[in-house]
Simulated assay, not measured.
Amino acid sequence: MMMLYAVAAADADHAAATDDTSLQAHRYDDVTVFAEPLTDTPERSTREVLAFGRVLQQLWSHHPVLPVRFGTIVSDETELAQLVAERESAWTERLTAVAGRSEIIVHLPLPSDAAPDPEPDEPVESGAAYLRRRAAEVRRHDLETAELKAVLAPYASETAVLPQVRTGEARLSALVPDELVETARAAVEKWATNWSWATVTGPWPPFSFCQETEA
């Protein structure tokens, strides 16, 4: 039994296997698959997931990889070869798309669902006023997002709306060539001065653009 970690190009360096795991590189015509032999099904704990993530980060420090969803298991090398035969073309295409690129993430405020607390002696907001305010905030957010995509367009080959992880915050990720990351960040930061709150983080490994690796 093997747990899959990541897919890389066929010429990936075997030395990318980390010291703290028994990671192995399985080479095929167009891709290399990094996997760890196991005797038991991996525990789906926070500790194990974080350890898995650290291995992915280390692999990426050597060369572009597509992370495989945590807990993906194949019984043996025959099953792995069958999986590669089915997915090799898609994996190769996605590796080409992310090679030499990183992602930056812009964090944007979401429109509030709640009515603001009134100041002392201030009348409570009516239902109609709340709906008008809410509609105006949604329009502002839509405009903000559209403007942000336009700012990123000269630099990003792809953008993606990421799942919400913090209350009141939206995230837009952009896939940017490494040599343009700082320029793209500066453009976003300059644009953000026109808005009440928006921040940019990264560069990060472009794992948000590796969906094709789910098996």
Rank of each mutant, 00 (worst) to 15 (best):
S102C: 08
Y155Q: 08
A170L: 10
S112H: 08
S173H: 12
A90G: 05
L175C: 06
R140P: 02
R94E: 08
D121I: 08
A136C: 10
V181E: 01
T159G: 06
P123C: 05
H107V: 15
A115C: 04
V188H: 05
R134W: 04
T199W: 01
A129L: 12
F207M: 10
S102L: 14
A150S: 06
P163W: 12
S126R: 00
D142L: 15
A156M: 01
A160S: 09
P118H: 07
L172C: 10
S102T: 04
G127A: 15
Q211E: 14
P205L: 12
E93Q: 10
V98Y: 08
R134N: 03
P120C: 03
W197F: 13
R171I: 11
E179Q: 06
V138R: 14
W204R: 06
P116L: 04
E189M: 11
H107F: 13
E137G: 15
A99V: 03
T159K: 10
W195L: 08
R134M: 12
V200S: 13
R101G: 07
P177E: 13
P205D: 11
V151T: 13
A90P: 07
R166P: 05
A129I: 15
R87K: 14
V161G: 01
P163K: 07
R87C: 15
D113R: 13
C210D: 03
Y130S: 12
D117G: 14
E144H: 14
A174Y: 00
P154N: 04
V84I: 15
R94H: 06
S173L: 14
A153C: 09
K190Q: 11
A174S: 04
D113C: 11
V200M: 12
V151R: 01
E122K: 08
H141Y: 10
A170R: 09
A187C: 03
A153L: 04
A129R: 05
G100W: 00
D142T: 07
V181Q: 04
